[in-house]
Each structure stands twice: as C-alpha cells, then as structure tokens.
Nucleic acid binder design. Structure first.
Length: 322
DNA sequence: AATTCTCACAACCGCGGGCTT
DNA sequence: TAAGCCCGCGGTTGTGAGAAT
C-alpha cells in the first residue's frame, strides 16, 4: 500500500543552502530535469529533504528567475491580480514572468500591503477632513467600464483555461512565459544551467567559500536571468483568499469597484476573489463536471478574450493609482 | 561604540489534492 | 477501494543587514 516515505526526518539538514549544495542540486537537475524530487536527496547525497530541494530549485536556482526590485509595472500587476485572485501567489506568479510565487508573496507582505494601507488611510483621512475623496478618486464611467471589461475578460479566460485541459494559455500573450514548465517530450534542456554552475564555481573560487556563501544565499548573483523555461505553478484555487479579502476590498474601494452594487449583482459576486468563479480556474477535470453557473455560461458565451488588451488596460488604468 | 529596532527575504511548516501501490 | 506518499501551495518563522537611538 502506498509508497515508501519521502525522506526520514533524521539527519536532514536545514537552514541556508551552501554553494556546494547548490552545485550538486543544479547538476542533478541539469542531468535529470526537475521532478521526482523524492529521488534527489538519495541520488545526490544531499542531506536535504526532497521538499527543501524542490523549494531551493523553484525559488532560487531555476533559470529565468529575475531578482532585485520589482518594476512599477510588476507592482501594478501584482496589486491588480491580488485584488482579482486573492492570495493565490502561484496563480499570480504565472502572470509575472521571472518572478516566483515566494518573491511575490514576500513583496506583497513587506511592501504592497503597507502601501495600500497607507493609501487607504490617506483616502479615509481626506474624506474625514471633508475633502471630497470622490472628487479625486472617482473614476469616470468610461474608465470604470473599461476596467470592468478587463476583469470580465480575465475571468472569462480563466474559465476557458479551466475547462480546456492541455490547451496553452492565451491570456497575456507574450507576457506569460512562466505559465508552466512545459515538460519536453524528450530529455529536458537547461540551457543556462551549465552556465549557472560555471558562474557559481567561478565566483566561489574567486571570492572564497565564505563570500560565495553569502552571495549564494543572499544575492544569487550567478543565476542566469537570460530566460529559460520556468517551472509551472498553477494555483490551487480551492485555497481561496483567506486574509487578502480585506485588502482586496480596500483595493477595490480605491479603484472604485465598490461602486458596483454587489448586493444585487450576480456579476459582482462572481467577480469576487472569494467566490466560486475562480475557484476552479485550474481544475479542468472538476470544473468540467460541474454544471456551469449562469455567470460562467455568460462568460463562456462571449467567446475568446483579447488578452493583450488586458495588459494595456491594467497599465493605463492603474497609472491613476500611483 | 553598543544596543535595539525594523526591514527584507530565504527557508520551513502544515495542509489538501492527486497519484501510486 | 483504500492507505499513504508526493507535490504544490499559502502562511509563517528565522536570520542577517542596515537604520535608529
């Protein structure tokens, strides 16, 4: 019954990874490809649990990861997607090339949460002082409609994807290279992995193990960001937004989404990150089995969305916030 | 100069879904 | 069919660095 245990807890090393361990892991993955994490510790001799290896690879070592500050555009995208999807960082990360869900999550928790709170506080302060917040914050009907349209498009696309297993995503065309590590039919090729290792070794030799360790565990300067396939991490929608709702609402209020009367609108309820529409977004099988709700049918009937427009809309619309 | 505080981020933990045996 | 592991996810913690006192 079942399979043998993944790894025993005894003798498993924890804490920061050393460059040596990184090299071993990268070498192994270069040879065998990511996956079958259970075999990694035993095959490589690493005293790490398979989970730790997977995490190290997906969050740090895999090619194509971009490090450093988030751009304005990325920031806006995150804010928008968080409002739309809730704290489903993996799903959000799939729309942001070269960023890991962990990075986005950290960025949200350390920067954006505060920023939005500040903005919200500022807004409340203004209205308390009698300054018409509606004057500055209220968006024109045209803008609001456009924003609504982009959200409809996004929801529709999510639904299409959910109900079309195996079909490559067309959402955010040209912007979503990280939408999944496409497992190649043949042996995977990690174009930049060799280079990564070479750089790692080089840096390690030059600066010495100690310095290199620091670099490796804090800067990851040897990672090639030139781009390669990245790992897939479609979100698990069933774990829908738990604590992001309040902030989402704050965001929505900032953007004027609350101007839509949610009490009598099926649409707005369906658009809420907490409600069902997105919860099956990446579950083709289960979604296909349940009958379509009114809103889902309506979204489906509209046909394919124009994904590119979404990006433009987001970029344009959210310029108003910052 | 020493201590405390704050921030940023890497890594760990626990859970749920799905798969394997 | 059921037991139990693997994988991926989101939440949380630990820790080092820099700022403030």
């Amino acid at each position: 019954m079942g399979r043998p245990p993944c790894c025993d807890k005894i003798g498993v090393k924890k804490g920061p990874w050393t460059p040596e361990e990184d090299i071993i892991l990268v070498s192994y993955i270069q040879e065998h490809g990511p996956g079958n994490w259970r075999a990694v510790p035993t095959s490589t001799g690493l005293l790490r649990c398979s989970k730790s290896c997977r995490l190290r690879w997906t969050n740090y070592l895999r090619p194509g990861i971009k490090r450093g500050n988030f751009t304005d555009h990325e920031e806006k995208m995150i804010i928008h997607l968080q409002a739309l999807l809730g704290n489903r960082w993996a799903a959000i990360a799939s729309y942001l090339p070269q960023r890991t869900d962990n990075d986005i999550k950290n960025f949200w928790n350390t920067h954006l949460k505060k920023k939005l709170r500040k903005l919200q506080a500022g807004q409340e302060g203004q209205s308390r002082d009698g300054l018409s917040s509606s004057g500055s914050q209220q968006i024109s009907r045209g803008q609001w409609e456009r924003r609504l349209q982009t959200d409809i498009n996004m929801a529709r696309q999510a639904l299409c994807e959910a109900l079309s297993p195996g079909k490559p995503s067309s959402l955010l065309t040209g912007l979503k290279p990280s939408c999944g590590y496409e497992k190649p039919a043949t042996e995977p090729i990690y174009a930049s992995s060799t280079e990564n290792i070479a750089r790692l070794l080089k840096g390690w030799m030059v600066s010495g193990p100690k310095q290199s360790l620091k670099n490796s565990t804090t800067q990851n300067s040897f990672i090639d960001t030139a781009g390669a396939d990245s790992l897939s991490s479609e979100g698990t929608p069933d774990k829908a937004d738990k604590n992001g709702t309040g902030l989402s609402q704050a965001f929505e209020s900032l953007f004027g989404f609350d101007s839509l009367d949610s009490s009598n609108s099926d649409f707005s309820q369906s658009m809420s990150p907490d409600t069902g529409l997105f919860q099956d977004e990446s579950k083709p099988n289960s979604s296909a089995q349940v009958p379509l709700s009114l809103i889902e049918r309506w979204l489906f009937d509209e046909g394919a969305m124009q994904g590119k427009d979404y990006i433009n809309d987001v970029a344009i619309d959210e310029d108003n916030l910052f």
